[in-house]
Design a protein around this nucleic acid. Structure first.
Lengths: 166, 166
DNA sequence: TACTAAATAATCGTGTACAATTTAAATGGA
DNA sequence: TCCATTTAAATTGTACACGATTATTTAGTA
């Protein structure tokens, strides 16, 4: 059903050939898988008082702090319009502090509080708990992850190359 | 607290071992890849006046109509809280109609208008245009898609089995 | 020094997402 | 027939997500 010319004189079939079926689209597969994974995380993160994007932000902050908003955005692929309110929420929850960098007043430094550090201990059990629920073989997960990582690298290059459709 | 006792006499390494590094997480890879793909679609969909979720909804509607809100939600993995406003927006754009099913007044039937059908022709070029920008070999894409599809099927089962953490 | 350009967050407006609740309609008994 | 139960959408409240703009600060340069 691929090599059809569809330029014949007769009425073209009113067709699945033109618009790809939803379930055949890689993009939709990524979209669905991402949403389902977020749902799997939810019950694990709820006891910690974190949403999934907040958990990702905390992972980056735990890894190295203080970090600027820009650095967090780089690591997470998010911009300040998304991060600023998210960081304000976890600040309101007492997990991080935000302060202007005295050396460069344009920057805002984000750092975990004692409570934020303590949460790290609880959070350690999350990846293992989640892994138990993943339905693929470890080898397959590894392979999937590897392919995705390469894919993401290429997509980022592509996005950087034509951010504007130039 | 799976294998490591962490009660050893020496200071446990202050470590990447506990909290998985962000770039090693499959879940984050899915999250990033999904976001990047949406960005790739944006410039292709903008001329059509559609966002990416709206495009997905139109794909389902083009495939078979009329469809109820519930059927669309099933196909897309979204619930009425997300779909109702989305459908109202594309209705406001003149692409679909929404009406109560006379046979069962609880249901709402969604159907493309003539304008919505016409848009389908323009939309046909989108998948090919996008495919050109994808950075992996066709074989790899196929394999990635296959793995994801299986993964999604299993995740859905898992989500259905314990929607509640029972 | 004064003045432009670049960098950095924050803000604004629109559009998803989802849990929980509400409203309305259909269904299945007593 | 009447009523409890179930089903289907819509609504409410909170939280992302991003394009575009704005405000502030720093850096660069004549």
């Amino acid at each position: 059903m691929t090599a059809k010319t569809t330029t014949g004189p007769t009425q073209a079939p009113a067709v699945p050939a033109g618009v790809a079926r939803l379930d055949q689209q890689l993009c939709f597969a990524l979209y669905s898988a991402s949403g389902l994974m977020t749902k799997l995380y939810r019950p694990l993160l709820e006891p910690l008082g974190l949403t999934y994007p907040q958990y990702l932000a905390m992972l980056v902050i735990w890894e190295k702090a203080p970090r600027t908003v820009g650095e967090l955005g780089e690591a997470l692929g998010l911009d300040s319009a998304t991060l600023t309110p998210l960081l304000k929420r976890i600040e309101a929850g007492g997990l991080v502090t935000r302060r202007r960098d005295a050396a460069d007043e344009r920057r805002v430094l984000v750092e975990p509080t004692a409570k934020g550090q303590a949460l790290r201990e609880q959070a350690k059990s999350v990846p293992a708990a989640l892994a138990c629920q993943l339905p693929l073989e470890p080898g397959e997960l590894k392979s999937l992850h590897g392919t995705l990582t390469r894919f993401i690298g290429e997509l980022r290059k592509a996005a950087a190359a034509s951010p504007d459709g130039d």
